[in-house]
């Protein structure tokens, strides 16, 4: 396979020379027919990266080739090859789904029967053919997301960028979106998918890049990435939100032998412990929590996964 996307030493500094570096020396490749996920928390640099790959932002450094075309030197050719599904619902709400698709299709340079055929095709993919003549403003959040995706597919692109397309939608719509992306991929379309949901990256991706603070800290398949953390399990405690002495609990857990990392997520009432010896220390973990006044509501033990990797590489949970 040859790469459809080649990114080398990509950097972006806003308000150069003194502004913050949003993306630092990022390099990766996406092979034709591959789904590549950029996984990272909010503010990690995912959208900035995708904006540079979409010709929306000029890189401060590095090169980007899409299907062999440079985004800085041949943006017109690049735009013909890529489909972009932005994070925002970039549609005209007072127009119908059909009118939106007609408008955006014309913007891609499509016309006539070919455009009508493509509209029918993407409406089928979005599973919204029966709502084609309804105004977008009457759609649910999930339906809007699906039309948003359909617009990005109108011109039959070789690679499609999805920028967090499942944010803020219901589980059923999320499932439809993930399934439609997998279906697209079976037709040979390459995908760049950004998300901060580990489960989505795990389910979709052939390859995953973990990005944090603008840096790509690991790239590989899920198996390759989890090998980075060895046999470390994640033990997650759901705690009572009224826990009086959370800091004392965290301190007590950190000093237990074979505990590698301890993080907390007060918003989700979660304490996460990373350990390679779950069975041996589990009683100790429970007793320390009880003694320090943090009641446990539930307990989950997870085998090594991308969250473990992120925790291992950054010392922070993906949700932080």
């Amino acid at each position: 396979m040859s790469p459809i996307v080649q990114v080398e030493h990509l950097g972006k500094q806003y308000n150069a020379p003194n502004g913050p570096m949003a993306v630092k020396d990022v390099s990766f490749e996406i092979q034709k027919g591959e789904i590549f996920s950029l996984l990272g928390p909010n503010g990690a640099g995912k959208t900035t990266t995708i904006s540079m790959l979409s010709c929306l932002l000029q890189p401060t450094s590095g090169t980007i080739l899409i299907d062999g075309h440079s985004v800085t030197k041949e943006p017109k050719q690049v735009k013909q090859v890529i489909g972009v599904v932005p994070q925002d619902i970039a549609l005209y709400p007072t127009m119908t789904a059909q009118e939106n698709l007609l408008f955006w299709g014309k913007m891609y340079g499509l016309s006539g029967k070919h455009l009508q055929d493509r509209i029918s095709k993407v409406l089928t993919i979005a599973d919204l053919a029966d709502r084609a003549n309804d105004k977008v403003e009457t759609f649910s959040g999930g339906m809007k997301r699906r039309i948003n995706i359909a617009v990005g597919l109108l011109h039959d692109p070789k690679v499609v960028y999805f920028d967090e397309p499942t944010v803020g939608i219901d589980p059923q719509s999320r499932r439809r979106i993930l399934d439609s992306i997998k279906q697209l991929n079976t037709h040979g379309i390459s995908v760049l998918y950004t998300t901060h949901y580990m489960e989505e990256a795990q389910e979709l991706s052939h390859k995953i890049g973990i990005i944090d603070h603008g840096e790509l800290i690991a790239v590989g398949s899920q198996e390759q990435l989890t090998q980075l953390v060895g046999q470390h399990d994640l033990v997650q405690f759901e705690i009572d939100p009224t826990a009086a002495n959370l800091d004392a609990t965290l301190s007590a857990l950190k000093v237990i032998n074979d505990v590698d990392q301890v993080t907390s997520s007060p918003e989700e009432n979660l304490i996460t412990v990373q350990t390679r010896n779950t069975n041996a220390i589990l009683p100790q973990l429970i007793s320390q929590m009880t003694e320090t006044g943090t009641p446990i509501k539930s307990l989950t033990i997870k085998a090594p996964n991308l969250e473990s990797v992120f925790l291992h590489l950054t010392g922070r949970a993906l949700r932080d």
């Binding site: 010709c55 932005p86 955006w104 913007m107």
Partner: peptide, 13 residues
């Protein structure tokens, strides 16, 4: 604000 301007900018024009 709603992103249609940015979407137009990723079109070939």
């Amino acid at each position: 604000t709603i992103g249609t301007l940015q979407r137009l900018m990723v079109m070939p024009m």
